[in-house]
Design a binder for these strands. Sequence first.
DNA 1: TATGTTTGTTTGCCAAACGAACAAATTAGA
DNA 2: TCTAATTTGTTCGTTTGGCAAACAAACATA
Lengths: 397, 397
Amino acid sequence: MSMPRAVRHINETRTLEALRRNGPMSRADIARELGVTRSTASALVASLVDIGLLTDAPDGTTEPDTEKRTGRPGTRICVNAEHAFFLGIEVGVGRGSVAVVDLSGKVRATREYRFSLERTTPQKVAELVAKDVRKTLAELGTSPQLRGGIATVPGLVDFAGHVVRAPYLGWRDVPFLDLMRAALPEVELVGLENDANAVAVADMQMTPGARKNVVYLLLDTGIGGCAVADGKVLRGNNGYAGELGHIIIGDKGYSSSERSTVDGSLESYVGRRALFARHDHYGGRSERISDFLTALDAGEKAAVATLDDWTKQLGRGLASIVSVLNPEQIVLCGPLAPLFARGEASARASLGAHLLAGSHVPQLSLTHLGREAPAIGAALLLQHNLFAYDEELLFGG
Amino acid sequence: MSMPRAVRHINETRTLEALRRNGPMSRADIARELGVTRSTASALVASLVDIGLLTDAPDGTTEPDTEKRTGRPGTRICVNAEHAFFLGIEVGVGRGSVAVVDLSGKVRATREYRFSLERTTPQKVAELVAKDVRKTLAELGTSPQLRGGIATVPGLVDFAGHVVRAPYLGWRDVPFLDLMRAALPEVELVGLENDANAVAVADMQMTPGARKNVVYLLLDTGIGGCAVADGKVLRGNNGYAGELGHIIIGDKGYSSSERSTVDGSLESYVGRRALFARHDHYGGRSERISDFLTALDAGEKAAVATLDDWTKQLGRGLASIVSVLNPEQIVLCGPLAPLFARGEASARASLGAHLLAGSHVPQLSLTHLGREAPAIGAALLLQHNLFAYDEELLFGG
DNA sequence: TATGTTTGTTTGCCAAACGAACAAATTAGA
DNA sequence: TCTAATTTGTTCGTTTGGCAAACAAACATA
């Protein structure tokens, strides 16, 4: 792209970003935010309105009621939410979800589906998912504006859209993006993403107060992770970074050795199967998280002892994560996250005990996102990428 | 900064970067490299020559002898090495080094010094270092061009230039940058940096073939670390990221519990004291690395057993690092790095055993940098920062 | 010697941001 | 109610800086 055009593109993107972050703003607001003159801001807005990305904010929009005293009031503009829709598809273990978000980042539709892992192939899954996507789109009646979609799987994904390894799906070197494209030709699927990465994107967008260094831990059958450093998802050399479930914290783990987990990894201590195995070890019995929680809430000794071990080991893993990444916050998500809520003190104590005295302990919190978080995150990822330019604070200020 | 001026600044920086990377180039080369027209490249070069940052390359310069057949030969220009010098100061455990690099990145002087940790205070260290810096500068006779300096310590440093914690110096909350400034007022000291981070910078600059995702492990009394992700040093929320020696890989460690190390951390298994403790455990005895290496090379049973344990534990730690960061390469540095050379197969086997089958294993290598690496890196860090703009490929191509 | 190729400079052009001026819209105060 | 102050949004001329084409210079080859 020629130089001046590139500068313009950057500023258009920054305008869009600012409006997405802050909601409706006047041209003068935008000028201040971007550090450009009002005339430049006007020109930028005009271009974007022409393309259809922005519109005048409806009069009824809640004006922020800032105690702005004097002067001519600005005409507020906002992103044209209807201009483009984005699709997110989560393929999970035996279930998944579908989500559609609009250009403003609002979730317009979600849907959950289930399938039997044992009796199906990746291709069948793709076809099944496609059916649910079509239903969702039909309900919205808006396929024309749909700009594309991204799918997620719980495992390693390469840049070409192949599932390198998804242990709990039993997939290995599956060209899932191609399969999805074949099953859903009417949508332009642009990528495949790790589920934890998508959850991170969803949480960052939905949670006010932008933090730049956050770690997400997705606690399920496998332990997924995503590290956000300096506002960007850490990808590593091949895109395999953030496999936080595989860090080594001990010798053996609680779950019996399997091909899907390494002995001694965080996952082998605090993954779903490890939890059940440990419960069994103490003489308890559970086959679902809800079983375990019921036993725990009833005060069952075995469950209490299991939780104690679980939190202690989680704390060890968190300590390693803190030492490597020094995040501001660690967000726990997934079906096992409720366990943390019930053993929080113990987990925090274990974390503290495995850090050098006086270390900076990040904020630990549970996500408030639902089960569709990966699908929503995937859609938001696309919404971001379409107009992104690798944001950097280059001009203005 | 106003917008058009910012664009110019970016391109000037890119010109400088290109010349630093590739050595002398013609204006046409620069134009191709930056993706701008020759006329623009000429203008950029003219500006930079005016400021004094660039000069015509001396005729004698080794022309790259590429088999360039026809056409008018270009007049090669290069960075004006003499235009600015940068100072790097390493404060290590009982020793340290000083280095001066010029604008071209060439090391112009180094010096090593020693001090007794037990009988001194941070202030005394600062004064002692200042003396060595003055000697070094006097030998060069070039204080006028000196643009500033950066110091390193083996420990956590905050953005304000305080040593938050340097266990093996016995320092805690020491405003070392201020002390250094007081002791060396004639040099503008602009920052304090972790030693491993500085080594990473040195290695990246000195090693051809730019890798974007590298992990440095500094094996000494403490185990320092630095993660480079996407070409940038990972800093985390408070600048404490990369404390790779503190990741938890087991229960207890080999070295007796001390306040400077957490039980079960990588450092407690493979740090200098852990090595000696383990050697002792097997009935050997060593007080210096060289003692241990001698015993090992003589085939002493205790030393062999110790090395075996050391490499196995190192492999566990490396596995965690790989899972979190997925680096292209892991570079081992520091006094204990020779141990890896002698137990490489075992370390690799352990690493592989603690990764999921089929994982991507990074290249493992030893650094070829000497003991002054931290000081050189600190100086290079400054050399980079002076003209940096957070490089991004924005224009051209 | 003629031709082709590459370099570096010159000149005019254009995109985009800047800056100042001005009308419009609103509040505060007399 | 009328005026002053303030903020917004637009207009228009200016400036910055990269682009494109033309051209002379320097070298290789035939």
